[in-house]
Amino acid sequence: MSTVTIAPITESLPAFLDSYDFSAIAVIADNHTFRFCYPELKPMLPKHTLVRIKAGEEQKHIATCELIWDALTRANFDRHSLVLNLGGGVIGDMGGFCAATYKRGIAFAQLPTTLLAQVDASVGGKLGIDFRGYKNHIGVFQQPNTVLIDPSFLTTLPERELRSGFAEIIKHCLIADAGMWDEIRRRDLDEQDWPALVAHSVAIKQRVVAEDPTEKGLRKILNFGHTLGHAVETYFLTQHRKRLLHGEAIAVGMVAEAFIAFQKKKIDQELLNATEEYIFSVYGNVRLVDDDIEPILALTLQDKKNRGREVRMSLLDGPGSCAFDVLVTPSEMRRGLEFYRGLNKN
């Protein structure tokens, strides 16, 4: 398991670099982190290669990987080199994947700059890219050499990005800490203690990943809300409608999947009500129409937790508890999405 350090980057990055003798260093950044975060790193780095890519989930594909691999190749990077992934989930997933596959693997470090990446994507060694519209369809498990989290980077984010990352915090509380769930749902978004919540989520994810590094069992609980959430996110990426951020789609998934858990008598009405009411208070309603439902359900057949043609979900099993490998039928998923649509809080 990788070391995760939560500290000012001005302290953690020099200490990490001093402990190794890398032959070359590359920084992968997108347009946003190049502007807002890279200037803070640059003075601390020796001579290095900067690989700058466009921002957004739409860039998380094999063609962008080819640009990254080409930059490393042209700079003569060998197997003693280091890649620093400076960005959110897209940069961390794709940059880590490129490092893990370049010359069969070189060192890389995650420097997450978004709330989503700090509390979830950067920890645990899941790396990958999207393929033909399917989320994280091609990838590997490979732990980074280190994860360096600086909560001050969160000040560079617009509120919508903070809200997106908060969905993963909500998820961690619902599946693993009922007490913290009660605390966060009594606060508005702008009242949350981000440094404390980052540390809390990292601790939960580290504990789960240490027990199940390659998602054969327990680690699947971290996918609560993600079977339908990823399907909704993927579907909206293909539509000429407002694009959903990852956390916004996962919020839809958590409400729909909480209803499925209720229908299966895994949670009571009180927890279902509290979940949907708080999530709607933070995220509002994503408009789904009749014609959206079947294409979204079809996308769940590519979910990585499935067994054969059977969709297997991770569902709440009471406050602060989650079951995994729960068989769910298309009709149950349809009812979950219809429940979400019926709430229509807008």
Rank of each mutant, 00 (worst) to 15 (best):
E168S: 06
D303S: 02
E191R: 11
Q302N: 15
M44F: 13
V123I: 15
C173T: 15
G88P: 10
K103S: 00
G284R: 07
I25H: 09
S2E: 15
K135S: 00
R35A: 05
P112D: 10
G56N: 08
F236L: 14
E276G: 00
I296D: 02
G89F: 07
R312W: 08
D292C: 03
D188F: 01
I175N: 02
M254W: 13
V119P: 09
R335S: 13
F97L: 13
R160F: 01
P8L: 00
I169A: 11
M44C: 08
P144W: 00
E338A: 08
Q59Y: 10
I260K: 09
Q192P: 07
Q239G: 01
G139N: 08
A109E: 04
R334N: 11
L17C: 10
A15Q: 14
V198S: 03
I184E: 07
L82N: 05
D268Y: 13
F262D: 00
V51K: 10
L41M: 12
Y134S: 13
R335G: 00
F108W: 13
K54S: 13
L299Y: 06
P319C: 00
D30A: 11
H137P: 00
D268E: 14
T227P: 03
V4I: 15
G124Q: 05
T5D: 04
V208K: 02
Y283E: 09
E11G: 00
S164V: 11
L82T: 02
N273K: 14
Q110G: 01
I267K: 12
E57F: 03
V311F: 12
Q263E: 15
L154G: 02
I267Y: 09
N273G: 11
T113N: 07
F224T: 03
T114W: 13
H230S: 12
R341I: 14
G124Y: 06
L337G: 11
Y235G: 10
I91C: 11
D130K: 07
N346K: 15
L67W: 00
D325H: 11
H226W: 12
R79K: 14
E11Q: 14
G336H: 10
C98K: 05
D130M: 07
R335P: 00
F259N: 06
K205T: 14
V282H: 01
E248G: 05
G133Y: 09
D188M: 04
F262R: 13
A199E: 14
S12F: 12
V311M: 14
V311T: 15
G179P: 01
D70C: 02
C98F: 04
T5E: 13
F339H: 15
W181M: 09
A196F: 00
V90H: 04
H48S: 10
A15I: 06
A109Q: 05
Q59G: 00
